[in-house]
């Protein structure tokens, strides 16, 4: 028989447990990406001479594979005295990688703020910090939430790469089950179905969010 249901039921709890690790990696990685990306985008505006440096940095990060960046942080950082466990190194790499993408999204959001908003802030003598916190960010973020959401989903789908440095997330767990039992069909298919389900649900959520935001801006 190609598909063994009793085997499926047996491995489901193990995979469910691993799924928690995948989701944790996703959430921590995304918080890192969203925060660092925002910092990059803000610094770029607040300190104009950094613009070129940040562009090059973003291009460098986006031009090289995440897998190699994961290896780099996991294997090269210890040579400089920074030893990280596999989960931390992997999540850090994912966070930095997606920060580069997120910073471009924020940048687009800031570019869409009308110049008059900056000018009114100057005329009211607001500090740069207050201008960002109270005027620019509250207007710039809502329209880009769907784009950030898409990156959250993309990031989630890259967490299987953590298996390359033996983080016990879904893919690694499925592989171990496979090599222990010589049955790959069920574990790997289940992992695929899990990602598919999560992606379809998130896509629907993002679409709903988009509609909600459109309605709000119509006000």
């Amino acid at each position: 028989m190609i598909w063994d249901w009793s085997f499926t039921l047996e491995i489901l709890p193990v995979l469910a447990h691993a799924a928690i690790v995948s989701v944790e990696a996703t959430l921590i990685g995304f918080v890192l990406a969203a925060t660092l990306g925002l910092v990059l985008a803000v610094v770029r505006i607040a300190v104009p001479w950094t613009g070129w440096t940040i562009s090059v940095l973003v291009e460098l990060i986006r031009s090289t594979p995440l897998l190699i960046q994961i290896f780099f942080i996991y294997f090269v950082f210890p040579k400089f005295g920074l030893v990280l466990d596999a989960f931390t190194a992997g999540v850090l790499a994912i966070g930095i990688h997606y920060a580069a993408y997120c910073s471009e999204v924020y940048r687009a959001g800031f570019d869409n703020i009308h110049r008059g908003q900056w000018e009114a802030s100057i005329a009211l003598n607001l500090s740069a910090w207050t201008t960002f916190r109270d005027i620019i960010i509250p207007q710039a973020i809502p329209p880009i939430v769907p784009a950030l959401g898409n990156y959250l989903v993309a990031l989630f789908k890259e967490t299987p790469l953590l298996s390359a440095i033996a983080v016990m997330e879904l893919m690694q767990t499925a592989k171990i089950i496979g090599s222990d039992t010589f049955r790959y069909t069920e574990p790997i298919t289940l992992v695929g179905l899990f990602f598919l389900a999560m992606s379809l649900v998130s896509a629907a959520l993002i679409r709903a969010l988009e509609r909600l935001l459109n309605r709000r801006t119509m006000r």
Binding site: I2, L161, V191, L196
Partner: peptide, 23 residues
Amino acid sequence: VEIFRGTSALVQLFWLFFVLPQF
């Protein structure tokens, strides 16, 4: 389109490599 966008590239790679032979 939905299957290949909804699952991740590594999962697809492993599926074709490890599971497809079983079929």
